[in-house]
Amino acid sequence: MSEADARPSEDREAGIDRQADHAAIARLTDELLPALIAKLGSTRLGELEVREGEWRVRLRRPYGTAPGEGRRSTDRPFRVPAGHESLGHSRSGAEAHRPARGAVAGSAHAADPSGNGSRPHDEPDRSIATSPAVGIFRPGARAASGTRIRAGDSLGTVDVLGVPQDVAAPVDGIVGATLVEAETAVEYGQELVRIEVIGSASASAGGEAR
């Protein structure tokens, strides 16, 4: 497997990277975090996010006002919401890249157990990676059709005001079609990449190898 072959060289680089990481983490925790916590504490904002170099810090207010967080993702839109004509994509063009939305609207499907916006598809051998946020979709190298991927792999990012958020693969599998063009505006929960699920036996074996 290509992934296993790449590991030794990755390990050497990782040692150097790790020292830099520790320094960066120390700086973030000593300087940035207290300032962010104070800022969040003085406002009603639910969430703050700051990027410094390759590091991204997100603070989320801890109080529990949402009893059912993430448990209610069974609703599907009965209309295609955002057309994003402002970004040069026609409404019909945007819809053409999202055929799955209408197709699954009436069918029963499993509720999202993760609450992260990645939900298993109703078809047993297929799954779909969805957008973690509102922003601009940038598919990564692993979003190429035919790529073997593991659950949690990044298939690209959604750029939220300059801060990239990973589009995570919900399952082990092989990338099928990318449903949205690169550099398109996407909404939270929008279906981005279709994944053909590998049989359950090989999927669990893959999990152990990690």
Binding site: L45, E47, E69, S73, G83, V134, V160
Partner: peptide
């Protein structure tokens, strides 16, 4: 136009400045 900004939890939707 309507755009989904996040999950039901208001902290990640109606209270999320980035979203």
């Amino acid at each position: 136009e309507a755009i989904c900004i996040g999950p039901p939890d208001a902290r990640r939707s109606y209270l999320s400045a980035p979203a």
